[in-house]
Design a protein around this nucleic acid. Structure first.
Length: 440
RNA sequence: CGGGGCGUAGCGCAGCCUGGUAGCGCAUCUGGUUUGGGACCAGAGGGUCGCAAGUUCGAAUCUUGCCGCCCCGACCA
């Protein structure tokens, strides 16, 4: 993409209503535009990041054998009356009446909807487990939206649901998602720590929040340092195998957020020098809730004995739009964003330092064409601005690599490649530019 | 929902106290000079001062009501 052809409204100063760094940088880098409190439009640069994250999440759900569906944003109130949540949910749910005065709602989540889909079709234990997910916009009318996309009212979430015959089977599904989440966050280049969370009515140890450490996080977290060093081989996961060993290696180490924190337990389980207290951002939550919805909504299957059995369910969420902010929170410097390669809106930025110099411009053009045809996503600054403007703009939007084309390129056939994260500059001959990136 | 703050040009702000021709920086447009870290010169465009009512000869400024946005807290992907 040529910058002269792009919609990239960067700002020199942060808008005064942006408080935390990710919100400021998203506004400054022209990623989002606020529509109203907690509701944002996604501009080209932001949308590319959102889509990249969405795709990684999708690929990992698919790899774990979860089926993608797409449920509507608008749901009928009747389903929620069946589960009893129509009254319980309160003002956080946006309620709408259609022209026939039917009660509808903008979905804050989809347990009812997915349970309805399940019960219409699945009648036998032989068809279990069923794992379904979708990636869809949600609306929760938060008391206080804040921090840009980190706590918006409208947000994009991946939510998955499992249906199993009993608690034991349900735990197998739970473990799949546990591991799938570890792998997903690893691919997003985030250190997300699974933390024990409140389990609700069925008890046990079947709820975890995945939290990344960040000063600006909303949760207080307490955990064993060893979790930070925990490295596991996650590339060749076989989801049909028993995953409990891997899951238990995480569960064995103490990690909780504030609502489950207990100082005595902390002291008992973690030596003093390994105790860490910090703040974190919740980016995922997995939860096994048993028969809460299946019972209310009569989601039954016939078991081996030909008897009706109420299925055990779980739900598994990842906040995709929140992750955009969360990634920036954990990866930025005073100049701007530093994108992890896996989610960067473009792989490479090219800076033409002298747009008016015909030789330098034709070198820039050819480098752009070469990298494009080699399959890279490239953002090419072909504007007529001064070098300082171009450098700071490219630093702000945070692409992992910048290819700088200037006098050296014209005189000595040298391109400078700057690593955004380290600031290191490599001199690369023009001929070798494609292979340079293929090896990086 | 309780507490606090803010609304003046695309962005950041001043002006309001003490009513009298709406201003600054950046951005934008035109012409020119520049081009290795947010350039320079000359010119130009852009705002019914959030909305409404009131007081007044006269309201960005004073009064009242409404709307919007942000921050702190309790709740949440």
């Amino acid at each position: 993409m040529r910058l002269t052809n792009y919609f990239l409204p960067v700002l020199k100063e942060s808008p005064s209503d942006a408080e935390i760094v990710s919100h400021q940088l998203m506004m400054r880098a022209g990623m989002i535009s606020q529509s109203s409190s907690g509701i944002y439009s996604w501009l080209p640069l932001g949308l590319r990041v959102l889509k990249k994250i969405e795709n990684i999440v999708r690929e990992e759900q698919d790899a774990a054998g979860v089926n993608e569906i797409l449920m509507p944003t608008i749901q009928p109130a009747d389903l929620w009356k069946e589960s009893g949540r129509y009254e319980d949910y309160g003002k956080e749910m946006l309620r709408i009446n259609d022209r026939q005065d039917r009660e509808m709602l903008y979905g804050p989540t989809n347990e009812e909807q997915v349970t309805d889909i399940f019960r219409r079709s699945i009648k036998s234990y032989k068809e279990l487990p069923q794992l379904l997910y979708h990636i869809q916009w949600k609306f929760r009318d938060e008391l206080r939206p804040r921090f840009g996309v980190m706590r918006g009212r409208e947000f994009l979430m991946k939510d998955a649901y499992s249906f199993d015959l009993d608690k034991l089977q349900s735990k197998i599904s739970y473990n799949k998602f546990f591991v799938c989440y570890l792998k997903t966050f690893q691919r997003l280049e985030l250190k997300a720590i699974p933390m024990a969370a409140e389990t609700g009515p069925i008890g046990g140890d079947l709820s975890h929040e995945f939290i990344i450490i960040s000063k600006t996080g909303e949760s207080d977290i307490y955990f064993d340092n060893k979790l930070l060093e925990q490295e596991n081989e996650l590339f060749n996961i076989n989801y049909s195998e028993d995953l409990s060993g891997l899951v238990n290696s995480y569960k064995a180490l103490y990690a909780v957020s504030d609502d489950k924190f207990n100082q005595d337990d902390f002291d008992k389980n973690v030596s003093n020098e390994n105790q860490t207290k910090s703040k974190g951002i919740e980016v995922g939550h997995i939860f096994s809730f048993g028969t809460k919805y299946s019972e209310a909504m009569k989601a039954n299957v016939l078991n081996k004995d030909g008897k009706q059995a109420t299925v055990f369910m779980g739900s598994y969420g990842i906040g995709i739009s929140r992750l955009v902010g969360a990634i920036i929170e954990s990866s930025n410097d005073e100049k701007g964003i530093i994108w992890p390669k896996s989610v960067s809106p473009y792989d490479i930025g090219i800076i033409n330092l002298k747009q008016k110099d015909g030789d330098i411009t034709s070198i820039s053009d050819s480098v752009y064409e070469k990298l494009l045809s080699a399959g890279f996503d490239v953002l090419y600054d072909d504007k007529a601005d001064n070098p300082g403007v171009k450098f700071s703009r490219m630093d702000l939007i945070g692409l992992p690599y910048q290819v700088i084309v200037g006098n050296k390129s014209k005189n000595d056939s040298i391109l400078e490649v700057k690593n955004r994260k380290t600031g290191d500059i490599s001199e690369v001959n023009i001929e070798n530019i494609t292979s340079f990136f293929k090896n990086n």
